[in-house]
Computed example of a mutant assay.
Amino acid sequence: MSADLAIAPQALRDWALGVLVARGLPPEEAALVVDALVDTSLRGVDTHGIALLPNYVDLLEKGVTNPRPQVAITPHGALLKVDADRGLGQVVVTSILDQAVVMAGTFGSVTATIGQVGHLGALGYFARRATDAGMIALLLQNGPALMGLPGSTARAIGNNPIAFGIPAPGRPPVIFDVATSEAAYGKLIGASARNEPIPDGWAMDQQGRPTNDASAAMSGILLPSGGAKGIGLAMLVEALAGSLSGTRPAASGNIFGAFLMVVDPSAGHGGFADDLAQWLDHYAASGPDARYPGQRAQAVFDQRSRDGIPVAAGLHEKLVATGKTVGIPFTA
C-alpha cells in the first residue's frame, strides 16, 4: 500500500482556487469553497475536505450546481427564507451565516431556511465560523434516503447531519458535527475501497439483513445512531432543512435543503461565559479521557498545519485527473 503524501496546506489552497476559477466561480467565491475544504482536511475530517473537490468540479461541469447563482433572500422578521439557485453550499451558506451573525446582534437569534443549495461539506466549518464571531450556531442539512430501522427493506430517510458550535472563551470552541446514522456513508466508501469489513450495527443489505460487507451496505440501508433516536433526529432535520425550505434531494443527492440558527449569548442572562466555563471544567475533571467535541480537531489542525495534509494515493490520482480536466496541473 502506498504511503500518504503530506502536502502543504497553502499548495492545496492555491491549486484548488485555480481549479474552481477555471470552472467559472468568481475568485472571491472560489476562495470560500477552498477555505472550507482545506480547513476541514486540516481538522482530520478527510471525507469532507479536499476529497470533495473532484465531485464539486464534476457537478459544475455538468451544470448541476451553479457557479454564479442568483440567490434570493426574503426576510420574515428574524427568519430568512433563501433560494440558493443551486449555488455551492460553502458560498451561499457562508454569506447567509455572516448576515445572520450581524442580525443576531439586534434580534438575539436569527434563523434561515435555505433551499436548492449545493452540498455544504462539513457543517462544523460553519459552526466554527459562528463561534469565531462569539455566536452559538446550529446547522442542519437533509439528504437522499439512505437510512432505515432494523427490519426495513427500503431506505426511509436521509442520514441527515447535525452540527452545533458554542464559543468557549480561552479554549477551543465546542464543535459537534455528526450524521444521524451510526456511521457516515463516506466510511462505507473507504472500507469498500480497502476491502475491509464494517463493524456490526452500521448497515443492512438490500433485504434488510445485518451485514459486515461494505459494498453490500453501500447499496443497502444505513442504520441510525441510537436506533429510533437517530431516526427522530433525522426527521427533525428533514422538517426544518427540507420541508421548511421546500427541498427534497433526489436519489443523486446533489442539491439539498439546509437550516441554520445563530444565537447571541449576550442576549441571555449575562453569565453565559462563566457558566459555560464551570460545566466544561466539571466535565474535564470527570476522567483523563473527558475530551469535548472540538478539542481533537484542534489538535489535528495544529499538527497538520505544521506537517502537511496527508493525501492517500487514490485521492492523489483523482486530484491529478481533476487538474487535467481544467488545465491546472496538480504537481504536489
Rank of each mutant, 00 (worst) to 15 (best):
L97E: 05
Y185K: 13
D4T: 12
G44F: 02
H282Q: 15
H48N: 01
V45Q: 08
P173C: 09
G226V: 05
L139E: 14
H119F: 02
E29H: 15
A30S: 05
A130P: 02
F164N: 00
G18F: 01
L52F: 03
L20T: 02
L12M: 06
L120K: 01
I136F: 12
A258V: 06
P67M: 04
T47L: 08
D289C: 02
L12E: 02
P167R: 06
Q278N: 15
G44I: 01
V117T: 01
K81N: 11
V82I: 14
G294R: 01
L223F: 04
G49F: 00
I50V: 14
G270I: 13
G201D: 04
V311G: 00
S192Y: 13
V82G: 03
A251E: 14
L17K: 07
D205P: 07
A234K: 06
L146E: 13
A84T: 05
V19R: 01
V174C: 13
L222N: 04
V101S: 08
M218P: 10
G49C: 02
V320Y: 01
G294Q: 05
T74E: 15
I166A: 04
F256Y: 07
N254R: 08
A179Q: 10
A241W: 00
P293F: 02
T325F: 06
V300L: 07
L149C: 10
R194N: 11
F272Q: 10
L59K: 08
G268A: 08
M1Y: 14
A72K: 14
A163S: 09
E238N: 07
V92I: 10
L32D: 13
L315Q: 11
L42Y: 04
G118V: 00
T325D: 09
F176P: 03
A51N: 15
M218K: 15
S192K: 15
V101A: 03
L123G: 08
G271C: 10
V101P: 09
